[in-house]
Structure formats: structure tokens, C-alpha cells
Design a binder for these strands. Sequence first.
DNA 1: ATAGGGCTTCCAGTCACGGGAAGGTCAAGG
DNA 2: CCTTGACCTTCCCGTGACTGGAAGCCCTAT
Lengths: 128, 128
Amino acid sequence: MNIGEISRETGLPAKTIRYYEDIGLIAPDRGDNGYRRFRERDLHKLNFLGRARALGFTIEDCRTLLALYEDETRASADVKAVAEDHLHRIEEKIADLKSMRDTLRHLVNACAGDDRPDCPILRDLGDA
Amino acid sequence: MNIGEISRETGLPAKTIRYYEDIGLIAPDRGDNGYRRFRERDLHKLNFLGRARALGFTIEDCRTLLALYEDETRASADVKAVAEDHLHRIEEKIADLKSMRDTLRHLVNACAGDDRPDCPILRDLGDA
DNA sequence: ATAGGGCTTCCAGTCACGGGAAGGTCAAGG
DNA sequence: CCTTGACCTTCCCGTGACTGGAAGCCCTAT
């Protein structure tokens, strides 16, 4: 498979696939013409990466997870630790965003949104 | 005020304040020695920026908001539009993160987290 | 005179790619 | 045989909003 085909298969942009090779997440073969040649194993890895990224894991998390995935003697505790850390980070982010959302909602609701200049949003941002 | 003092006053890192000058959000005076000299007006603007950034507004949003803030003839509708857009973006982000969180929680709960290699997290990421 | 802290500019790095240029390769059609 | 157009290659720059660090000037106190 050339990069175009595997890109269609995995749904990952060709740019992303080349990037993943650059940083050592995958290592496809090369044909005589210099084109990358992807095998079943690469397809599998790229799908793995796509799903892990969709869950918000960082690239470094993905690197760790891939290594664990390929290590038949891994302990599931190691995988769980990575996932739990990530889960906590996500929960923190949600909490931060919720607090922003609540403040913003409050301000937006308080603003008349007409052609007059008076605005509680700017008043809130502006005063000490 | 020198940059160190205004940094303490506003809670913004000096680096950030210089950056805001670079991109034209503020324009402090300069003393004979080349040092930035911040006035009341700069302090006010920087506090405004700090609060807007804390609410998650982008720098470009902040630029717009600052301009509206300084325009006595603004329409509050313009401010509200910026804030509502941002609110929607935040709500989308929260929804995305929640869906990640739910999937992750599910997987984490299903994982034994012991020294055995079998792991539903990896199984989920790995299979088509 | 020197030590220290604060200030200046400039350059590079972050994260995970995306855009685009310049050029090689391949299969089909005239 | 030549051209066209789709595909592939590498390389470099840009993103957002800073952060870190180097090299060097300024100011005050000892």
C-alpha cells in the first residue's frame, strides 16, 4: 500500500502519517522508487494511533501505549496508569471549562445585546 | 512602573507583557534608559487582558474586546456576539471532552490493573 | 570596583501537525 | 515517444500563546 491508500483506509492525513514516521511511531518499508510501502502491521498501528489520539492521548502517551501494546509481558496496571492519568487531566480540563462557561453564560445573559454601549461583559473585564 | 512591578501587580509574567507589546495589545512608554514605563492605563489594560484570557478568550478576541472597551460608541451587541461565539466554542469543547471522558472511564473501569497482560484498554485501541 | 538584581533584545522551542514549493515516478492516452 | 495528470518525495515555514535562555546594558549598594 502506498501512503494515499493507507490514508484512505485509516482516515489519517498523509501528512500525519509521514509525521508519525518522522518521530518514530511507525517504520514502513520503502520501495525501489523511494515510496513508502505500508503493510498490515502499519495499518494496524496507524488505526491504533488514530483511536488513541481521538481519545485525547498525547503523542508521548501513544508511544508508551504502543510499546505496551507490543509487549506481550506487559502488566495491565501500566496501561491503566497511563489511562487514569489522562482521565484526570481531562476531568480537570472539563472543570476549568465549566467554570469559564458558567461565568460567560452569566455575563452573556446580563448583556442587553442592543445598540447601546453599556455592557456588563466589558464592565466585568474592566474593573478591578 | 517598571516591568517587574507591573508584573507583580497584574500577576502576568514579564515575558507575557513584552509579548503583548510585541503584538500591539499595549504600547507602554520608554524611559531614557530604554526601560518600559507603565502607566495607570497600561495597568488597567493588562488587568483586562488577564481576565479575558482567564475566561479563555483568544488573543484576537482580546484585541477585539479591548477595541470595543475603548470605543465609547460601541454597541453592546458586538461585545455579546464575541462572547457568545466563545461560549459556543467552549460548550463544544466540553462536549468533546465529556465523550472522551466517558469512553476512558469505561475502559479504565474494565481494566484489572494488575500484573497480568490482558487489558481491555489495549484491546479496544487495537481492534478494528 | 564589584556584586547583585533588573532590564533589554533576539533566538529557539513547545505540540501536533498543515500548507505549499520544487521535483521525481507512474500509468494511460494520443 | 511524448504528454498529461495523479501520485509520491523532501524541505521549510507557520500555527497560538507563550516560555526558556543567552548576551549584554543599567542601577543601586557595599
